[in-house]
């Protein structure tokens, strides 16, 4: 079961800050992030790649996104 962050309803930079904190604590593995704006999606992807995490999957439902981040 992967860890999950629900950052829907939060405005930037909150989704990024929460994701960065979680990624640092996990160090590796898989993290699911739920978002509801294009810009928070872009920024969270940037934040993840700055720490060496990859985007495994992006699923869009309407205006919501489900990102799966992973680091081996």
């Amino acid at each position: 079961m992967s860890d999950l962050i629900d950052a829907r309803g939060l405005s930037c930079p909150q989704p990024v800050l929460i994701t960065l904190e979680k990624l640092k604590s996990l160090d590796q593995g898989e993290l699911v992030v739920l978002l509801d704006t294009d810009t928070s999606k872009e920024n969270v992807i940037r934040a993840a790649s700055s720490l060496g995490w990859q985007v495994k999957d992006v699923a869009a439902t309407g205006v919501e996104y489900r990102l799966i981040l992973e680091k081996a």
């Binding site: 930037c12 930079p13 990024v16 960065l20 920024n43 700055s50």
Partner: peptide, 11 residues
């Protein structure tokens, strides 16, 4: 900014 630390106002 490359880490995504962009405030909503700038967007």
């Amino acid at each position: 900014a490359a880490m995504g630390l962009v405030p909503a106002g700038s967007l």
